[in-house]
Design a protein around this nucleic acid. Sequence first.
DNA 1: CGGACCATTGATAATTGTCAAAATTCGTGG
DNA 2: CCACGAATTTTGACAATTATCAATGGTCCG
Lengths: 237, 237
Amino acid sequence: MTENCSCTNCKDQLCMHKVPIFSSLDREQLDKIIELIQRRSYEKGETILFEGDLMDSVTIISGGSAKAYKNTSNGREQILYVFSEGDFFGEQNLFGDETATYSVEALEDVKTCNLSRKQFQQLIYSFPHIAVKIIDELGERMTRLENALQSIGVRNVDNRIGSILIEFARKYGIRDGSNTIIHLPLSREGIANYLGVARETVSRKFSQMENEGLILSISNKEILIPDMGKIEDIAFN
Amino acid sequence: MTENCSCTNCKDQLCMHKVPIFSSLDREQLDKIIELIQRRSYEKGETILFEGDLMDSVTIISGGSAKAYKNTSNGREQILYVFSEGDFFGEQNLFGDETATYSVEALEDVKTCNLSRKQFQQLIYSFPHIAVKIIDELGERMTRLENALQSIGVRNVDNRIGSILIEFARKYGIRDGSNTIIHLPLSREGIANYLGVARETVSRKFSQMENEGLILSISNKEILIPDMGKIEDIAFN
DNA sequence: CGGACCATTGATAATTGTCAAAATTCGTGG
DNA sequence: CCACGAATTTTGACAATTATCAATGGTCCG
C-alpha cells in the first residue's frame, strides 16, 4: 500500500484506479477528473445518504464498506446492497433532479470520492467509454438484484443462507487449504435484513449448520467453512 | 392508428418512436437506424428468449406484452418484469458475450424490433445521448427492482397485492369516474409468481378483497376497483 | 471488570404453502 | 349462439415454515 504518500494527486489517483468505470481513461484524462473530485470520510455507523434526500452527487467508495437499504413505515429494513471499494451510487438520479431511493450507512469507517452530478454528466458526454462502463456495471448490478429477487421470492431460507455465504466468501473470504474463512460484513440482524427473514431465524439456521459441521463460528463476525462444496449443495438444493 | 400504412419505413418509424431511448434523435439519425432494424413477431405463449441462451441482439418491444422470469431447478418461476410497448431487453449483455439471465415469454402476440449487439454498440458510441437515455432507463428499472425486493422481503402479502394493483392500474388501467378498470396482464398464477407467493394465496386474497368491496372481478383478466384510495391504504398499511 | 450490545434458544402463534376437489371461465367447433 | 371440454380458478382442510415474544447467554470495548 502506498497510502502513505499524502500528496493530493497520489491519493486521488488511488481512488480513481479503484473504480472500474474510470479504468478505460488514460493519464491525461484522469488528471482532468482528479481536479473535480471531492473526498469525504465517514465513521462506522454514520449515515452517508438518507432515503428521500435530494441527490446532488455521485459517490464512489474508495475504502471501507457500507449497506444500502430501504425502510418501511413500520420500521423494517431491507438491505439492497453491500457496497465496498470501487462501488458507486447516486447514478440513478443522474438526469432528473430526483431523490435518493435508499439510505446508505457505513458498516466500517468509509472513505469516498464525490463528483457533482453536473460534472459526472459532462464526463459521460466527453468520454463515451465511461457511459459504456456504467451501462456494464449497472447491468451487472441488475443481474445481482434479479437473482436476489428470485432468491427471496421462490427459494427457501436454507437456499438463501447458502447463497449469501457463497457471495460473502467470494467478496470477503480467505482460502486456507480447503477451509474458507469469511469476515462477515453484516451482523446477524444485517444478514436477516438482507435475506428478508427474522433475526432469530438466521441464528437458528446458523446453529443448525454448525451442528451439522457445515460452518464453524469463530466470532460473531467471522466464520470458517470447511467445505464450500457442501454450502453450494445447500444453496442450490 | 396508422398501422395500415404498410411501407417498411412507416412501420419501422412507428417502432422507433415508441422507444424512449431513441427519442432524442432527429429524422436523419433515425433513418440510419431504421435500416439496421430487424422486425420479428411472436404468438402468445411463445418464448422470445431462453435463460442461458447466448445473446446476440437487443430486443425492443413494439407491440404486445411479455413476461421476463427465472426458473429454479425445482420448477418454480419468479417473474422479474412485465414488459410492454417501448421496453427493451438484452442490453445487460451488451459488452461481454454473455448469456441471458432470464427467459422472456409473450403474454399476448408480440412484435419486436431487433438490433444486433454490434450495431447497438456502434449506436451508443455515435450518439452519446442514447447512452444517457439507457442509463436513465436502467436506473428506473433498478429502482423498480429495488422496490420489488423490499416488497417481497419485508412486506406482507396484502401490501404486495395492493402494490401490484397500483402498478397495473397505472400501466393498464382505464379510469371511469371514480372507478378504475384494470386489464390484468397476468393470470392468477402469474401474479403469484410475480409476488413470490402461492397461486392459491392470490385467489384467497382476491376473494377476501372482493367480499370487502375493494375489488370487483369482471372476468379472470379484468377487475374493477371502485376506490383506488383504499387499495393504496392496503399497499402502504 | 462492567455494562451495553448482540446473539441464541425456547415456546407459541400466525401466516402461508400444499394437496385435493369442486366450481368457474374460456375458447373452439358445431 | 350455444355447448362442450380443457384450462384456470376457487375453496377447504391440513401441514410446514417462519415470525414473534420473552428470557438467557455471550461478546466486545472502554
